[in-house]
Write a protein that binds this DNA or RNA. Structure first.
Lengths: 249, 249
DNA sequence: CGAAAACTTGACCCAACTCAACGAACGTGG
DNA sequence: CCACGTTCGTTGAGTTGGGTCAAGTTTTCG
């Protein structure tokens, strides 16, 4: 995936991975007006309780995350997002935002008018279905995360987070699936897994000592994917990566 | 909500609570063919890994839950469902089921053909939007559950589960919001909150000793809703209950 | 280069888990 | 409708995974 692509070509590729699209469908997406925006690390794209945005953001470069806060101020990251992800489909038809969306790194988005997307959805059922599927896959990831923080120990939880990230990055064409930078502080990894940064530190150290990952700063390499997968209790089924590929049921 | 209603009238009411529907929209829903099915407690409606069903189930009576299992066999309940809930919108466009759906009590559903629903969605954008919103609200609940199991202690977690259940039951017209039966074993409450049944037992006892709830078998009464809400860190924002009511943004 | 942020490690603690025993409630068949 | 097996709920005793607190050390970045 080259960086010189037209932003909407990337969006076409994303939606085409969710549902088969005709060339008319694809052209309709390419014709969508958009503006690009950039965000600094930690800046907010959406705040809980606000009216949902009038536009829908598509990630061109950088990383973002969804997050909620308890009354006592504890933070729970509920999902991670990377180039090629659509951020606001979760709020496309909702009036108030129920969570926060924050830039993890420097972030570049292409923002498409929400009403324009809604019209497109009405006129092009296949595109609507692709967007709908994308939102359903997000929901599937949320369910997996409920299980991850609810029923797995620290070692498995963190390993699972790493496997999910690596798998999604590979699918998005952003790495080879085994060597990658995880652009998160250990505190953020803790916020994503329901742990403290201290325990994340100790657990990452153990994973490295056990020879499952090689670590250098935030760069990670899996030494044995299958072993890692097994420690992480990871199966990519919930990511629905082959959604558009399978024959219709 | 009377029990003598036509099942599709209940579905109309549900969808109309998600988006404003014209009388033509409503009539189109009423005209949907369906069959009713009943399930015994603990029976499976959907199994992880299976092809998604060709129909979409709408709960007429009884309760159900979504659930995932870790490789070690630990169960995590990821959502609860009650009369008026639509169960399969999460899989409407997905090819493989990524989680299990099980009857909690004796359950009665009205099953609508999935392709019929898809056609309806194509022809009636307002209905499509209502269904889409319903799926988005489910996703919002998943996010809240990630935070619940990830960042709250046992007392708050369980109180939050009770508040959510009471609020949704009240909104569905099934109780007054403060006195209700929670048709779950303590083990199931544990599976929903990421705790063991022993600790659920102790924590429920503490909530009762502190005068927050009165308990008799599985019947619960809140003695002070506002106090309970505060202990539970509960805000109904994430349930998007007023979605159809608010003025358009 | 200096300050702030992120990472690391040790010592100690506690919320929740495990194991185990028993009592209460339920449902099922005779 | 009662006996009885099974599931569910309750409680105690002891354990532990992960948290807390605190003090460095390293990295990042202006």
């Amino acid at each position: 995936m080259s960086n010189t692509d037209h932003p909407m070509e990337k969006l076409v590729r994303k939606l085409a991975s969710r549902n088969v699209l005709s060339s008319e469908d694809q052209n309709a997406i390419l014709a969508l007006p958009y503006v690009t925006r950039t965000y600094e690390p930690n800046s907010y794209l959406i705040r809980e309780g606000e009216l949902a945005k009038r536009y829908c953001s598509f990630v061109l470069s950088g990383f973002a995350y969804r997050q909620k806060l308890t009354a006592q101020g504890a933070r729970q990251i509920v999902s991670l997002h990377m180039p090629g992800d659509i951020l606001d489909l979760q709020h496309l038809f909702l009036k108030l935002a129920d969570h926060n969306v924050q830039a993890l790194t420097k972030l570049e988005t292409a923002d498409v008018d929400r009403d324009g997307l809604r019209v497109l959805a009405t006129e092009r059922p296949a595109v609507a279905q692709a967007m709908w599927i994308d939102a359903l896959v997000d929901a599937s990831v949320f369910r997996e995360w409920v299980m991850n923080v609810g029923r797995r120990n620290a070692r498995t939880r963190i390993a699972h987070l790493l496997c999910e990230f690596a798998t999604r990055m590979k699918f998005a064409g952003l790495n080879n699936g085994e060597n990658f930078e995880l652009p998160m502080t250990q505190e953020q990894i803790g916020d994503a897994t329901g742990l403290t940064s201290v325990h994340v530190n100790r657990t990452l150290k153990l994973l490295a000592e056990d020879g499952l990952v090689y670590r250098d700063k935030r760069y990670l390499s899996f030494t044995d994917w299958e072993h890692m997968r097994s420690v992480a209790d990871f199966s990519s089924l919930y990511l629905h990566l082959d959604q558009a590929g399978l024959p219709a049921p």
